[in-house]
Design a protein around this nucleic acid. Structure first.
Lengths: 188, 188
DNA sequence: GTCTATACAAAGATAGAC
DNA sequence: GTCTATCTTTGTATAGAC
């Protein structure tokens, strides 16, 4: 992966997270990377290819981090959850930024098929990781709740994504903090 | 409001809810209404004007219905909540459809300022309506919860919006039903 | 690996005939 | 109120020089 290719991925990802995939253009990327439009094609032959590469890199980063946490028996359920919340808190403080896959979910019908599959995989990975954390946490007595872990995990995930979505229009950055507090109390 | 103008609003709204504002074009609308592109301009002088008209109509429909419920002392908190959930359940069963303002929230930075304000107003109206329902419900003993009504209302609203968003990529239509069950148990 | 030049399609919008 | 014709901009993508 060359330096330029990495920069293209960085800028492209930021544009999707702030303005959406439809509004992300080679023109804008080129301008901010400091090259011309057709130079991007040399690294990524089409917009769909670039889109897939951006999601896959994003997914991979999460996958390796979440796997590491899950495999470490030292990590408590609360620590795991706090780790999971941290990127959302980061996004919440950055104006106009949402989760990459949350942004893409908003325009699913406008995405090429390969990208849709990547987004779906992201959602399922995260919901299933959360389910595991909830399940273990309840088993060892750390967490308390009466729902099934699967149902609760999906609700938590959807809530986090929805809060990022809504905070962007209300510009109320404290919403996510409040929501995380409510979530934590639900699990005590 | 002429017949054609209404049709334009209908088709435009559906396109935003399924494909997003950026992907909604005069071309597509004209094709489905059965007129030519420039004829739309006669009814709505610009895309932004059309966008604002679509949101405002959507907001007004909700506002009058939610107001009626709030003012009717016969309505229990549970009935009010069930009424509020019903459009979400409807959207959840319609493939690729989300709440109009949820869809627009996904592309806030790409929207003209006037539209952004309308979306923000929608979010605030709904969160504040829910807050009122929760507050009254707790006061008269129907509902039980320990959060502040404002915080809980925002969380519920964000959860519903997030669930519609996520179901679109996972194609798992049962998610919303499950989430509503969890919400209801939280309030008992 | 990056450039200029260009092809081609689709977008929002305007002018003016009917 | 709707049309045809046209303008302008912006988008993705290609060809070929350097």
């Amino acid at each position: 992966m060359t330096d330029t290719a990495t920069k293209i991925l960085d800028v492209g990802q930021e544009l999707i997270q702030t303005r959406g995939y439809s509004a992300m253009s080679f023109q804008h990327i080129a301008g901010r990377v400091g090259i011309k439009k057709p130079s991007i094609i040399h690294h990524f032959p089409s917009k769909a290819t670039l889109g897939v590469a951006i999601i896959r890199r994003y997914r991979d980063t999460f996958t390796s981090q979440l796997d590491a946490i899950k495999k470490n028996p030292q990590t408590s359920a609360w620590e795991a959850l706090d780790f999971y919340f941290s990127p959302y808190l980061h996004f919440a403080q950055t104006p106009d930024t949402v989760c990459l896959c949350g942004a893409l979910a908003g325009e699913i019908p406008a995405l090429p098929e390969e990208m849709r599959l990547e987004v779906k995989q992201f959602m399922e990975d995260h919901q299933s990781w959360l389910e595991g954390i909830l399940q273990n946490g309840r088993r060892n007595g750390e967490l308390t709740f009466s729902e099934t872990p699967a149902r609760l995990a999906r609700m938590l995930f959807n809530t986090l994504q929805g809060t990022l979505l809504v905070k962007r229009s209300t510009d109320d950055l404290s919403q996510l903090n409040d929501v995380i507090k409510v979530i934590k109390r639900m699990l005590k």
